[in-house]
């Protein structure tokens, strides 16, 4: 516990003030004065309350689906646990909630709900896509003029905003209903099987959609930068050797038209 004298140095005072906000020590109260109208502890409480409430508000804005699932009281409990475990280390509150999904996955009692963890992962990915670096997606015509031999070494880069997730609950579907339900009433159904999702932002609107199983394998191989022939090979076990190239070319066209592909090289 740090105790501060009235004549504390700047460093002592700042350390004690921060420790007070983090509820590590009440020693800072000795360094400030009562006023004629009110005692110092009440005044210091303005700072202590504001610290926590501000960060809860940030999480509320970043995780409306979690609020929908949990309701205000449980969300508040979860947020306070996260705030205590993860003080902000970034100049912008934009990044404060970055570790929430991992925190929930690692911390009882929150790790008991995979639906909550899935929602946190999905909402953070949506937020990441929202202000990710801009990139102009290529158009379908760019690939049409390529010589056949170019396809032997052709590789692609997806938009910087593109995220891949595998979720075991139907959180994107529930997230779309987040404003229709009273907080606490947002039900999230388990998926019939783990489902692959892509999230990306071609212009200013963020898109998301589920992927077929072979589409997810192909997209992951493309994200790794593997050339087109290897992409085809990656889905041979799922679609057969005779269908692999046509399926890969078809999916590539879908992604290009959906604005997911930023560039290619050969």
């Amino acid at each position: 516990m740090s105790i501060v004298s009235n004549a504390g140095s700047l460093a002592d005072l700042q350390r004690a003030f921060q420790d007070y906000l983090l509820e590590k020590s009440d020693g800072f109260a000795a360094a400030v004065r009562d006023t004629k109208k009110i005692d110092r502890v009440t005044l210091l409480g303005v700072y202590r309350d504001a610290y926590t409430l501000r960060l809860i508000e940030v999480l509320t804005i970043d995780y409306p689906g979690l609020m929908g699932m949990a309701g205000p009281a449980d969300f508040d409990y979860m947020a306070r646990a996260y705030i205590a475990a993860h003080p902000s280390h970034h100049p912008s509150v934009r990044w404060f909630g970055r570790g929430l999904a991992d925190f929930l996955a690692a911390t009882p009692p929150f790790n008991g709900s995979q639906a909550v963890i899935d929602m946190a992962r999905f909402e953070w990915a949506m937020g990441d896509a929202f202000d990710a670096p801009n990139a102009q997606p290529i158009g379908a015509e760019a690939l049409m003029t390529l010589q056949p031999e170019a396809w032997e070494t052709l590789s692609f880069a997806v938009l910087p905003s593109l995220h891949r997730l595998t979720l075991t609950f139907d959180v994107p579907q529930a997230w779309q209903r987040r404003d229709e339900e009273e907080p606490g009433n947002l039900e999230v159904e388990p998926s019939a099987r783990p489902t692959d999702w892509a999230i990306w932002r071609p212009e200013r609107m963020t898109n998301f959609r589920s992927l077929e199983a072979d589409e997810a394998v192909l997209l992951d191989a493309l994200i790794e930068g593997r050339p087109f022939p290897e992409l085809c090979e990656a889905i041979v076990p799922m679609v057969g050797e005779d269908q692999a190239m046509a399926r890969a070319a078809g999916l590539l066209r879908v992604w290009v038209e959906g604005g997911m592909i930023a560039s290619f090289a050969h």
């Binding site: 934009r94 929202f130 202000d131 670096p133 801009n134």
Partner: peptide
């Protein structure tokens, strides 16, 4: 700080 982001709408 609201505009110290890589891209997008802001």
């Amino acid at each position: 700080e609201n505009y110290m982001v890589p891209g997008g709408s802001p």
